Amino acid sequence: MRRLNALVVDDEPLARERMTRLLEEAGCEVVGNLGNGLALLEWLQGPAEADVIFLDIQMPGPNCMEVLADARNPPPVVFVTAFSEYAVRAFELSAVDYLLKPVFEERLFKCLQRVRERLVRRLSPSELRSLLPTLPRFPILAGEGEIFMELSHVTHFELSQDRVWAFRGLNRYLTRWTTLSDVEDAFPEEGMLRIQRHILLRPEMVRGFRPLATGRIKVLVAPRVELTVSRAMTPTTRKRIDPATK
């Protein structure tokens, strides 16, 4: 049986360790164990080679699908995800395989057989980009009409005089919403934090933070833009933005 060289890419250390162990037990050589899209980009630019990449789709940093789409002759990919909608998208493409978390030995064995039999092929850049999720967006007022803004550009939302403003650093944009609950209801999976009664933070946009003498913290979301977190929400916010916080 041909020994496969496998690359594991997942931002969760425990998930990487488990996948590495399962692959090694299945007779594979794990040639890399990476935690984000930037590490994948650097690896693809190096001399190492892999027969297959086991890739978690949702990770911080550069989007891995775009990284692979821009790479020259990337290896075949097996998508590993806890989100079934990505699995469905992957399955719709011919000669693509996926694993749903948690991964089990029997399902992994079948997947490796497909890789060895070359039934899992390299995807073209257009095929890789077709698997990218549709980015959530929302309308903002522009003159007498509206334009759409991608949620990924927003640092936070603020409620002022019964109107919700979307902020992109120092710049603000008027939305249709009249309460922060409207925003949370529109994006229930985004995990935004109500750090003040009138401020809704996208925690992934935090660049840094500093403690205050009052027991609160200020979070930096853009150059010259700091937001004060309420005392009640400081512990929760620190845990979300600082993995070392206990």
Rank of each mutant, 00 (worst) to 15 (best):
M19S: 05
L100D: 02
V9F: 05
L40Q: 05
M233H: 00
N73F: 12
N5A: 13
T178V: 01
P47C: 02
L93R: 11
Y86R: 01
K110E: 15
M149Y: 15
A222W: 07
V219D: 07
F83L: 09
P188K: 01
E184S: 09
L212Y: 04
A142V: 14
N33F: 07
T228K: 11
P211F: 04
P62F: 14
V120Y: 02
R107P: 10
N36T: 01
F167E: 04
P76F: 10
E127K: 04
R121F: 00
A90C: 10
D51L: 04
K218Q: 15
E184D: 03
L159Y: 02
A244W: 13
L170V: 03
P188T: 00
R197H: 15
A48H: 12
A48V: 11
V183C: 09
A244M: 12
T236R: 06
F83T: 02
R116C: 12
E17C: 12
V103Q: 11
L99K: 11
R172N: 04
A50P: 08
E117K: 12
T236K: 02
Y98T: 01
G61K: 13
Y86N: 01
T134S: 14
L14N: 14
E117V: 07
V30P: 07
H153M: 11
I195C: 04
R172C: 00
D51W: 06
L132E: 12
G169R: 02
E25S: 11
C64E: 01
L100C: 03
E24H: 03
V229L: 12
T155V: 07
P76C: 08
L7D: 02
T155A: 04
T175W: 03
R137Q: 04
E117S: 12
E42F: 05
L141K: 04
Q58G: 00
A244L: 14
V221F: 15
H156I: 00
R240Q: 15
L93G: 08
A26E: 14
